[in-house]
Design a protein around this nucleic acid. Structure first.
Length: 879
RNA sequence: GGGCGCUUAGCUCAGCUGGAAGAGCGUCGCCCUUACAAGGCGAAGGUCGGGGGUUCGAGUCCCUCAGCGCCCACCA
């Protein structure tokens, strides 16, 4: 074994071997309680693994690998999402480079090109997942547009349509003029921008006056069809029913009353543009105002508007309309900058144009959301951390119908056909004739479904739904869903609704929400900042284990975001190297094979102590993972392995490991190997590669992946074995540290050994138990003597847990340093004593605090009093 | 306009049901001690954002103020 762990050599080998051996494949268990399933949030085919993916996949793999080691059939379902808009845009861009517009190509040829592209470049992320060691069951890989899922989507659509949950209607949609499609409300991102709030004037048709209105998008006045005021607004009450005249095309616009108008905002009169504003659309619905759509699909002014503005883009039109108003003397004023919220496309970031784009398909959510809210409320579904439940519930309560039509070519085409008479046929299989009139002239709806319509089915469609497959029976509901909060609404909420409605049960029992990965200073990673951490590069540099461990260690539930720096990944690499080297030490003496823990009476004190600490680590890791707290689990592993096993345990056992006495040597090697092997299993879900590589030398099984997971119960007795050592451990640890500190302060060479004398308390056992030899090893001592206080003269004096320790170091003692050291200690001891004494002086404290707390304070006073006295005596001695 | 989160050591963060302030990184000093210098040992560094309250006791619970961040929302 080389002294440096070489992740680059080890990891690819195991990544390949695990796949060859089918180690990630899950069988369908007979007993459903043995089934454990997580579905991967399907990454976009266009995607590449970024650190956010790496985080989520690491957490999932930790859960899956642990479940697998616990003997469950752990299925981690892999797959990808066809990602409608995202993919179409990428391929369109490719085509444009070749000088081709998709419309020239035609729909079928374009879709064929996308498939071609998908086969060639899509799924880069899969290779990255494999490098990460993600134990996905690749035999079951799915794609949201594969044959089975196409069928699932159709059935879902048809079933909801028949239940009246899917309907077609004319509504305003969130239109992206760049991507040329409508979007659901969740796909619109609102951002504050500096715009202007412009006031202009509509003259009354009868010439008796005018009405002023305010707007941030003055070009939409071309599509105004009315003016709305609050019914109780005295300023305008008399105008209701009158009309104003449109300055550009002389239309007469009625003045109507509507409650939504806020008299306190602007002028209290609202221009109504039903075709380009959701609020106005609603007002028009209530008041019967007509709609006038003045924008085309690219957000240019169309032929419905006044002639002089034809063909202008929306921003040019904004300027042009304003200038015209100024010329006509109708411009009143402008507030600039005016900060207000504007919707943007979540894919391309263009400003969204609310737009009346004809008939669209919608999912009616009212009946779907009720059970989905209930499931979160009654605990069938649990959110981790819990606060997300509230966010989910309140979002669900405000949820409005979901627009599922997308004016794209890449995606699941809507299974609805129209005959010339306008009858709608919705069918599972492509129909030959109209279900209403029998006409054979059918045309399928040109639109496709929202990408999220198919991904909402993912937890059950991948398992074979709608068929009643063994997989579906065993693995549905899934155990856990792990995802970032950014798609809680876009995806998670919809899976719950569709799962309960279509698959008849909640899709998963636990939802683990993790934060967004940011750079080491909490900034968003972006190319322009140059702070992007590419998981691939990190794996090249430090290994997948290093990346995984670092991510797990940072994955705390409390905070919203997760700061990741190259340095923190380096920490993970160092840890892998530490594990490697500890194994190297043990393996120098351990011959390989399965270690056998020597019987209790043959275990040394440090070994028993290590067992107790190992037991504690097992309990901590399990408790943390049961609560989906990955950072504390990683922390517990790190502390146990590095501080306890290596820094204290191995240092104490090193000599015995190389003992002349073969029996001692064998027992020590076995005991350490045993603990190490169990710890490797605990570490394995987080750091699969290095643990597998080392484990191969210990155990007899084929892979650590199936080695039994250490459970807290089975180790409880080991804590008892170490109880005697634990009792003296605080003293031992402080003694060693205190002597080391003394040596460091006095610059005593590491090689020189010093005698340690403990002033024996009357009649007591030595406070260090049986750890005499270990103390000498750790503190660099030559021997330990038990003495009486009469022997104190001439020695340096330390106080450990109130006990006096003498170090007869003779000339090595620098008197100035020693006086300074003693004064510092004395000061600290007096502070401590004072603090405890003050507490005790408070009668209320003695009265009301629990007995053991009071006793602890009393002991503290005693102890620091003794320490102070002892140090003072010595100081006096030194003069 | 609602809602949520954060504010603890130079940096990034842990601190469960309230009982003597922690980690990693960074800094300083000493060590290449035959597992590991990607290491070991030791050290320095904190009025736990401000104010008020509850309590014998508050980083921890309550109120309030301030700053930062996020989510949701049809004030044109």
């Amino acid at each position: 074994m080389p002294p440096r762990y070489d992740a680059a050599a080890v990891e690819p080998r195991w990544a390949e071997r695990w796949l060859e051996r089918g180690s990630f494949h899950a069988q369908v268990p007979d007993d459903p309680s043995e089934a454990y399933c997580i579905v991967i949030p399907p990454p976009n085919v266009t995607g590449r693994l970024h650190v956010g993916h790496a985080l989520g996949r690491t957490l999932e793999d930790v859960l899956i690998r642990r479940a697998r080691m616990r003997g469950q059939e752990a299925l981690w379902m892999p797959g990808m999402d066809h990602a409608g808009i995202a993919t179409q845009v990428v391929v369109e861009r490719e085509l444009r480079k070749e000088g081709i517009d998709r419309r020239e190509l035609g729909r079928d040829a374009f879709v064929a090109r996308v498939w071609e592209w998908k086969e060639r470049y899509g799924g880069e992320i899969i290779g990255q997942l494999k490098r990460m060691g993600a134990s996905l069951d690749w035999d079951r890989e799915r794609f949201t547009m594969d044959e089975g899922l196409v069928r699932a989507v159709r059935i879902a659509f048809v079933r909801w349509y028949e239940q009246g949950l899917i309907y077609r209607g004319e509504r305003l949609v969130n239109w992206c003029p760049t991507d040329q499609t409508g979007l659901s409300d969740s796909e619109v991102e609102h951002e504050d921008v500096d715009g202007e709030l412009l006031t202009f004037r509509y003259p009354l048709s009868d010439g008796s006056g005018h009405v002023d209105v305010v707007t941030t998008r003055v070009e939409t006045m071309l599509g105004d069809t009315g003016i709305a005021v609050h019914p109780n607004d005295d300023r305008y009450r008399d105008l209701i029913g009158k009309t104003v005249r449109h300055p550009f095309d002389s239309r007469d616009l009625p003045i109507v009353a509507d409650e939504v108008v806020d008299p306190a905002f602007g002028t209290g009169a609202v221009k109504v543009t039903p075709a380009h504003d959701p609020t106005d659309f609603d007002i028009a619905q209530r008041t019967g105002l007509p709609s006038l759509n003045v924008l085309d699909a690219e957000a240019r002014i169309n032929e419905h508007a006044a002639e002089e503005f034809y063909g202008l883009g929306r921003y040019d039109a904004r300027q042009a309309v304003r200038e015209e108003l100024e010329k006509l003397g109708l411009f009143v004023g402008v507030e600039h900058p005016y900060r207000h919220s504007v919707g943007h496309c979540y894919r391309c970031h263009s400003e969204i144009e609310p737009w009346l784009s004809g008939l669209q398909w919608f999912v009616a959510v009212e009946d779907l959301k009720r059970p989905a809210i209930e499931a979160a409320r009654d605990g069938r579904i649990t959110f981790w951390p819990q606060r997300w439940r509230k966010a989910y519930v309140s979002w669900m309560e405000g949820l409005r119908d979901w627009n599922i039509s997308r004016q794209l070519w890449w995606g699941h085409r809507i299974p609805a056909w129209y005959c010339p008479d306008g009858h709608i046929t919705v069918a599972l299989d492509d129909p030959d004739d109209c279900a209403t009139c029998g006409s054979a002239e059918l045309e399928q709806d040109p639109d496709v479904l929202d990408t999220w319509f198919s991904s909402q089915l993912w937890p059950f469609s991948t398992l074979g739904w709608p068929d009643d497959t063994p997989e579906l029976r065993a693995f549905y509901p899934n155990a856990v869903l792990v995802t970032g909060y950014e798609i809680l609404y876009l995806w998670v909420a919809r899976m719950i609704m569709s799962g309960m409605s279509l698959a008849g049960d909640i899709p998963f029992r636990d939802i683990v929400i993790h934060g967004l990965v940011r750079d080491g200073h909490g900034r968003k990673m972006s190319k322009s900042l140059g702070n992007v951490i590419d998981p691939n590069e990190m794996i090249d540099l430090h290994g997948a284990d290093a990346l995984r461990f670092s991510l797990a260690r940072l994955a705390t539930g409390g905070q919203q975001d997760i700061p990741l720096s190259v340095d923190s990944i380096k920490g993970g690499r160092n840890f892998a190297n530490k594990i490697w080297n500890a194994a190297r030490l043990v393996l120098q003496e351990f011959p390989g094979g399965e270690p056998e823990l020597p019987p209790g009476e043959r275990l040394t004190a440090p070994q028993r102590w290590l067992l107790a600490r190992h037991q504690r680590c097992v309990a901590e890791v399990n408790a943390a993972l049961d609560a989906f707290e990955f950072a504390p689990a990683a922390q517990a592993l790190y502390r146990f392995f590095w501080s306890e096993f290596c820094d204290w345990g191995l240092e104490m056992e090193k000599d015995r490991l190389r003992s002349e006495d073969e029996a001692v040597r064998t027992d020590t090697a076995n005991a350490l190997a045993w603990i190490l092997e169990r710890t490797l299993r605990l570490l394995h879900p987080v750091m699969p590669f290095v643990t597998e590589e080392i484990w191969q030398r210990f155990a007899v099984g084929e892979t650590i992946m199936r080695a039994p997971w250490p459970e807290a119960d089975e180790y409880r007795s080991h804590g008892d074995l170490g109880a005697d050592v634990e009792a003296v451990w605080p003293f031992v640890e402080e003694l060693v540290t205190t002597v080391r500190r003394f040596r460091s302060e006095h610059r005593i060479a590491p090689k020189s050994r010093i005698e340690i004398r403990l002033v024996r308390q009357e009649g007591g056992d030595p406070a260090f138990g049986s750890l005499e030899q270990e103390i000498l090893t750790l503190a660099g001592g030559s021997r330990i003597e038990l003495v009486t206080s009469a022997d104190a003269a001439g020695s340096a004096r330390l106080v450990v847990q109130g006990e006096t320790v003498l170090l007869p170091v003779g000339d090595l003692l620098d008197l100035d340093v020693e006086r300074a050291r003693l004064r510092k200690r004395l000061g600290a001891a007096e502070d401590e004593r004072g603090r405890a004494a003050r507490k005790l002086a408070n009668p209320a404290f003695r009265d009301k605090a629990p007995e053991d707390v009071v006793r602890a304070e009393e002991q503290k006073v005693e102890r620091f009093e003794r320490e102070a006295a002892s140090l003072q005596e010595r100081l006096a001695e030194l003069g």
